[in-house]
Design a protein around this nucleic acid. Structure first.
Lengths: 241, 241
DNA sequence: GCAAAAGTGTTCACATTACACCCATGG
DNA sequence: CCATGGGTGTAATGTGAACACTTTTGC
């Protein structure tokens, strides 16, 4: 390869760069959901000969007139039917041989959706929820992408209260605690958990109880979006365990 | 745009994707240094007509046979002459109109170098260190990239001891404290700072003193790489203020 | 001797942890 | 009445923040 210092630089001088415009760019979405007290991810089966019958993340090529965030939202909307979902860019994967179709650089996003509140579209290719803990092998470099996004999720839920995107609008403290435990892979003390969550001031008691549970019903809460927006302006909101 | 659900998907089915291979991919490196008790960043002047005389980050187009990390290392080596520098991918920027030469998606990295221990190469285009705090305007979307990378640096130095990459091999506690203060934009209590740093066990007293300082010389320390590697295996090393 | 920074401990407030019993509901 | 989880408080420990004086060197 020609040393770049002998070559004009794209940020610096006008130059014929046509030979560089040979990349495709894609997004891959790690769509997390929570169901049956287990953290799940939405996967599809690959038909590519190279990865016959391996599971793959949901992704797509980015159009030439589209940015990465828009492409991710598009994938999410097309696959889950949901809009206004939580979506966060994590990392860009660029190994030279990572895609058999050619030089495809892919930016990974994770998103958090309510696994019960959406209808899966395009049920072809066996679009399904899979328990994250059970996944051992995937197509492309998607196992690495999944692991990277899971680590990002674990870190992020201890910094900001994005976890509520995975729950119904109303939820019990038990559901919330099981969700934290499922994502972090730890057991938490119930009393300390309740104390900490209440002191954040981010839970609103909606004065309703669980129904149809085979035990004493718990209170239901919603996430206080308004209060969180105010807090964010001033300082970060840590929820550490 | 055609809804993607009517279109074969790159992760799923073989498909003619040639019309997507029209992107260029670049890297932009936010190269941080510390000198005169000020956090600085290495910039170059742009010759592009659109951004005449604006300052720009160091970046380059990625070759078709090169991944993003390699491209960043190449830029760094070419510009600073340094190898084995700390380099970390931060975010990928993809606004449709962000580069006048065409559709260029750029992945931002920050890197930490010792601003005194390298020789600037390619002194054309006024390659120079600039105090981060003084920068108001830049070419392209580089102001946004710089701000994003600075925020990433601020966060990261409170999670892992990467900050030592900005100092000489031997440093005084005062230099280290001033560096934390410069990056975080806060004042720290000297006694508490020393206490905290010593309890990490990451400082080795090299039994030398500062020389040629107009005041009582302080002890010099080095960063305990070996101990840090061991700690990393077990748990993360937080340095919070 | 003066200016400048090195070096050094204690106290207080707050946050985190560990831990056990009674209560409400469904079956 | 039994199984299941809901709901509650306190004591001990650890962590972060605030704070002042003496010492060493160069000039």
């Amino acid at each position: 390869m020609t040393p770049s210092r002998k070559k004009p630089n794209i940020n610096c001088s006008p130059v014929d760069t046509s030979h560089f415009f040979g990349f495709a760019v894609s997004v891959d979405c790690v769509i997390f959901g929570f169901d049956e007290n287990v953290l799940k991810v939405l996967l599809i089966k690959s038909d590519l000969p190279t990865f016959q019958d391996k599971w793959s993340l949901l992704g797509d090529l980015v159009e030439l007139d589209e940015d990465l965030d828009s492409a991710s939202y598009r994938v999410l909307k097309d696959r889950t039917g949901l809009e206004n979902v939580y979506l966060e860019q994590v990392h860009t994967f660029s190994s030279v041989g990572r895609h058999p179709a050619g030089r495809v650089v892919s930016t990974a996003y994770f998103s958090l959706v309510n696994a019960r509140h959406h209808q899966l579209r395009q049920l072809a290719n066996e679009l399904h929820w899979h328990p994250v803990a059970d996944i051992q092998e995937m197509a492309f470099d998607h196992m690495e992408i999944l692991n990277t996004c899971l680590a990002a999720l674990q870190k992020k839920i201890q910094e900001e209260p994005i976890i509520f995107n995975l729950l119904e609008n109303k939820f019990s403290l038990r559901e919330l605690q099981y969700l934290y435990e499922a994502i972090l892979g730890v057991k938490l003390d119930r009393r300390n958990f309740r104390k900490k969550l209440f002191t954040t001031g981010l839970l609103v008691d909606v004065d309703e109880m669980e129904e149809n549970v085979p035990h004493r019903p718990g209170k239901l809460y919603t996430f206080n979006h308004g209060r969180y927006s105010n807090m964010k302006k001033k300082t970060f909101v840590g929820i550490d365990f």
